[in-house]
Nucleic acid binder design. Sequence first.
DNA 1: GAGGATGACGTCAGGAAC
DNA 2: GTTCCTGACGTCATCCTC
Lengths: 213, 213
Amino acid sequence: MPVFHYPADSQTNGTAISYIPVSSQSHPQESGGPSSSPTRQPRGHATDPDCNDLDHEALPTKMDEDEDEDEEEEEEEGWEDEESKRQKRLEQNRKAAHESRQRKKIKYQQLSEALEALRAESLQLSQQSQSMREQLAATRPTRHSQERARLEEENQRLRQALLLALQGLAEDEEEEPIEEEREGGQGEGHSALREEEESKEGNTSVTRAPMLE
Amino acid sequence: MPVFHYPADSQTNGTAISYIPVSSQSHPQESGGPSSSPTRQPRGHATDPDCNDLDHEALPTKMDEDEDEDEEEEEEEGWEDEESKRQKRLEQNRKAAHESRQRKKIKYQQLSEALEALRAESLQLSQQSQSMREQLAATRPTRHSQERARLEEENQRLRQALLLALQGLAEDEEEEPIEEEREGGQGEGHSALREEEESKEGNTSVTRAPMLE
DNA sequence: GAGGATGACGTCAGGAAC
DNA sequence: GTTCCTGACGTCATCCTC
């Protein structure tokens, strides 16, 4: 029951939160009446997950002083004032603490969902990366290099054939020296010139008609 | 009696921490709730934040007198028991709270560094993905088809030249030399010799010119 | 019901920012 | 100096679990 609820203040603002002073009796010990506390609203159990505190650091911090002992009983010239000051401080700190907690909580959950999002992103990124990798692997050696090798080889052969043909021409003789290691070369040598298509997928050769005659 | 140690669980530091219970009594005003036990205990505000956590141990705890010096009339002995129970509870809760805070703190920082790591991973993943994307894009239309076009074109030319050469051989007559297997031989109307004007430029090439329309 | 765990709070101490 | 902010603590209320 002692705890009261903050007036629905979201983190967005915080102004005008009337913090009910605790009426803390301060000083050595408030004690006094067990329930000397006035002005307290019952807290309706809001179950507000707060989640903060995350502390760290710790250092001794000594503070061992006992000087201003006011023993005699005629001091109240400055005390009241002092006390009221203290009350003010406390209240402000109360408020500040609350806000700080709110901030921390928000930060925490943002961080948490950022991580969530990032995890998802990372996952999808990674699988698309994988897919690309495969694609690349499939694309390069197969289509590119393989076909290229074929073309180059054919090229080589043609060059060879041409060379021979030219030699033949130059010698000005007859016969057909170009036998072609591949399939019987002569009669056109077209065999070597076959050319399987290259379309989208490595489908079988379509035997595109060679455009010569 | 009130001194005990936290398990020192933490990996950061293994020192045993002496924990001085506050001897409570506080009952902060409003929380007096049930107004149970006034239990006044002049606790001179010694600020006993144990300041544990990191190093700093030992801290001889003096002044832990028994708090029950009630010599004057003890009319309620039942209360004493009650009170001691309460003290025990408080102490335990104190300990539990501390541990809970530690856990939370650790959880938080784990989460935090997990996010850090994931962020890094995501970054690198994303740039390698980008690189692949480029590679893929560059590989398909450019390297592949461009070079392939070149090869094929050359191929065509060679074919053409060879054809002519063979024709020349077959006719076995006059000899117009078809020197130049490379560049020569154009202008046959075979159209197979499309020139390569588009290659170098990063043209779209999406249309993937079929070399013989 | 007893006991542990935890959200929320108020308080203090000490650093930061004005 | 002053205020503001926040880590750490102790306490309470509450939720689970046994």
